[in-house]
């Protein structure tokens, strides 16, 4: 692995200063959360930082706080901690299940929530070093190439799918993302945080240079809210979602008051299905309605040459996931 300097800031202000100073002196800096993905990218020469800003040393960034208005999760909380947290498992189940579905026990023990949300795409062209949009180039090799795992929604000019499992769950749970940078703190909704390649194909989110995703806030769900995260993989474990669905339903006497459905693995961002939410609101969740929801879920999809199978898979996943919550 190429040489670099690791620095251990004590707080976020120091971390931002270190990032800014590196930029001013013409050095490349990278933020290390859990570091597992970053080290892999350094070994593969996809990034070559001179400075690693290690967030594990930042005090308090690995805390989960809860009160009546909701939950505050530090960016450095590990996926293992999230998946095992009793309150998250009961009231914010989609997040616990999403975190628990990521990779392997070893990865979940080091990987952080912020790192999972900000990880770079796992498109095989990008990871193999092709000079694609995501690597700062001017081409998406999947369009005419091997696009089995690529986007059916929101693609163009890049057709990556967003790799995070926790991202669709957080969009479904109406989370907000707190970002710290040289200009101070700013807040974006989970949905606003992720951006389509049509807006900026070189990145996946709104983070500017020297900004850090510091904290995630989730509002307390109303009474009678149930949520879940369902993930389809091309093997039983240890991979990204071919398709996933995060669903949050607010129920009242068997009737769905409010529904939020967000897909993973189908688009360059967590892909919300507002039309499905609208058709479910005020309805009793029957098998017939769930099947209709599956049909509506894929309206507007544009499959590429080799990923058309994602259409029936999406229909089935939406139908099954809704019914699993209605049961």
């Amino acid at each position: 692995m190429k040489g670099f300097t690791n620095v251990n800031p004590k707080n976020l202000t120091q971390a931002v200063t270190l990032l800014s100073q590196a930029q001013e002196s013409g050095k490349k800096a990278a933020i290390a959360g859990g570091g597992s993905d970053l080290l892999g990218m350094i070994k593969d020469d996809l990034v070559s930082p001179d400075l690693l800003v290690n967030l594990k040393s930042v005090g308090g960034l690995d805390k989960i706080e809860s009160n009546t208005s909701g939950l505050k999760i530090g960016g450095s909380v590990t996926l293992a901690t999230l998946s095992q947290h009793p309150l998250i498992r009961s009231k914010y189940k989609a997040l616990a299940e999403a975190a628990d579905s990521v990779a392997t026990p070893q990865i979940r023990n080091t990987a952080t929530l912020a790192g999972n949300l900000c990880q770079r795409p796992w498109c095989w062209y990008f990871r193999a070093g092709f000079p694609c949009f995501k690597a700062g180039g001017r081409k998406c090799y999947s369009v005419m190439g091997e696009n089995q795992l690529h986007a059916i929604f929101g693609g163009g000019p890049s057709f990556i799918v967003h790799p995070s499992d926790t991202a669709p769950a957080l969009v479904a749970l109406d989370a907000s993302f707190h970002v710290i940078g040289p200009a101070g703190e700013r807040v974006a909704s989970a949905a606003e945080f992720f951006i389509l390649p049509s807006k900026n194909a070189a990145t996946e989110n709104i983070l500017q240079p020297n900004e850090i995703l510091a904290e995630i806030h989730i509002p307390a769900p109303p009474q009678q809210t149930k949520s879940t995260y369902a993930k389809i993989m091309d093997r039983a474990t240890w991979t990204h979602a071919v398709i996933s669905a995060a669903v949050s339903l607010e129920m009242s006497n068997g009737v769905c008051k409010r529904a939020s459905i967000v897909l993973g693995g189908v688009a360059p961002i967590p892909w919300p299905l507002p039309k499905v939410g609208q058709m479910l609101a005020g309805q009793k969740l029957t098998a017939q309605l769930a099947a209709q929801a599956g049909e509506v879920a894929v309206s507007g999809a544009h499959p590429l040459a080799k990923n058309g199978y994602k259409i029936p898979l999406t229909k089935a996943l939406v139908r099954r996931t809704l019914l699993s919550l209605a049961a």
Partner: peptide, 27 residues
């Protein structure tokens, strides 16, 4: 694999299994 994909390098860090190929010694 040296990429956190195979698990041959698994050690316990503070009693939890991690991939030691994907964790810096300084950390």
């Amino acid at each position: 694999c040296d990429r956190g994909e195979c698990g041959a390098c698994t050690v316990l860090l503070n009693e939890k299994p991690i991939y030691s190929c994907s964790y810096l010694s300084v950390w």
